[in-house]
């Protein structure tokens, strides 16, 4: 699916304000991912072209950052903090709960395409550990028992 006019306009705008267009690489990828959920090879190639980069160059950048998704993700991305404070407060159990409820391991997407489960570094919510983030919404003070209700909100 080719980049649409809206995406092209945003990438060009981002590129214009940089001393060199490739300076906008990360923001451009984020902008496209915001709309498409992930960055396919085809999308990557097109963004690269707009930025005057080769696919190799842009992929080198894209694969560095853990929040640029180079594989399809579900409708909702669940980022489970596995850093130290959350670990102390039981993130392993929380993740275990998610795994059983969703029937997937970290890195996987539910067969219905609803959730992708990923580990994440400290979310800066250590005062509400264990915490997770779904689509940018932070949820703290969790335990496995609270998961059912929480997931309900994400259809």
């Amino acid at each position: 699916m080719a980049l649409n006019a809206d995406e092209l306009a945003e990438i060009s705008r981002l590129a214009r304000r940089e001393p060199q267009p490739h300076g906008a690489a990360i923001e451009a990828l984020r902008a496209v991912q915001r709309r498409r959920g992930w960055i396919s090879d085809e999308t990557l190639g097109e963004v690269a072209q707009v930025l005057g980069m080769t696919a190799d160059e842009l992929d080198s950048v894209a694969t560095f950052y853990n929040l640029i998704f180079r594989r399809p993700v579900g409708r909702h991305v669940v980022l489970v903090c596995d850093s130290v404070s959350c670990w102390i407060m039981g993130c392993d159990e929380l993740r275990g709960g998610l795994e059983t409820r969703l029937g997937i391991a970290p890195g996987q997407t539910t067969p219905d395409g609803r959730f992708t489960l990923l580990p994440i570094v400290c979310l800066g919510a250590c005062d509400h550990a264990p915490a997770l983030m779904i689509d940018g919404d932070l949820h703290g003070d969790l335990d496995p028992a609270k998961l059912d209700r929480l997931l309900e909100d994400y259809r």
């Binding site: 130290v84 404070s85 570094v121 400290c122 800066g124 919510a125 250590c126």
Partner: peptide, 9 residues
């Protein structure tokens, strides 16, 4: 992103 740090937020 320093684990355990949430002051700047």
């Amino acid at each position: 992103m320093e684990p355990g740090t949430f002051k700047d937020r």
